[in-house]
Design a binder for these strands. Structure first.
Lengths: 131, 131
DNA sequence: CACAATTTACGAAGCGCGTCGTAGGCAGCT
DNA sequence: AGCTGCCTACGACGCGCTTCGTAAATTGTG
């Protein structure tokens, strides 16, 4: 068993992880079919990628059935958080605020989303601002 | 002249771009010295990277002096925006709100930063919410 | 059993990036 | 002129990711 994958998944790996997160444990075929058309290559390519992900500790598999069943070995929030943090360090000097502001400038968020963000802000300030 | 670099800079390229953005047009040596210790390799490595960046249209150079002077060919906000947008698509299905919330959950922002974000939110809602 | 379909396993190739060694050119100094 | 040092140019290598072809194992079907 791998210690704990500090690795950042590649684009292809992230696409596969997304399927596993959404659909739960799946066979190679199920993942392959569920991949978006623009990232789906040959079947054996998907297979190989998933095998490597097991080696790297990003996924694990149950071999008790003929068609092995793969499951994500890393949490969704944890992984996405690492990706965000990575970009934050590389491009924004570790400043969450700068990243957030660029994200909001980039794509117009809906009113509902803005409300969500506002709520989160309130929650954070409530926690951090005491005395 | 390249059309317009739709390319996403690599980590190494982003580090160099950051120096160019901060210091303005610079020689290879100046960039090399200004790089953070943990990403600085040999001098010729920096040189080679910057030459490739010119080929790719990420930078241009003035050869009128013996030590060529390089300048960024892509804007800082535009480039960082592309990186953010890229991650937003790959990991958050294009939802800015989800990315923002993960970023804020990730690293505790200072009170000043939170205020900045709040101000930005107000500006956005003011623009988008009008009757 | 023979045959087809599915799945896994293995290996190889291509590619881009990062890294560097080395060579050649130029400038200044003695 | 010769030496020394800095700069650019060029080529090469290693590595990891992606992609796939092909073989081997397994299961299902007539």
């Amino acid at each position: 068993m791998q210690p704990a994958p500090r690795l950042r998944p590649t684009d292809a790996q992230l696409a596969i992880l997304s399927v596993l997160w959404d659909h739960g444990p799946s066979t190679v075929r199920q993942v392959h079919e569920a991949l978006p058309d623009d990232v789906r290559r040959g079947y054996t390519t998907t297979l190989k990628l998933m095998q490597i992900m097991v080696e790297q500790g990003l996924a694990r598999r149950d071999e008790s059935e003929r068609s092995h069943v793969y499951a994500a070995c890393v949490g969704e929030d944890e992984t996405k958080g690492r990706l965000v943090d990575d970009l934050m360090q590389k491009a924004f000097g570790g400043s969450a605020a700068q990243l957030v502001m660029r994200a909001l400038s980039e794509t117009p968020a809906s009113a509902a989303e803005l409300a969500e963000i506002r709520a989160l802000l309130a929650r954070i300030e409530g926690k951090g601002d005491e005395a």
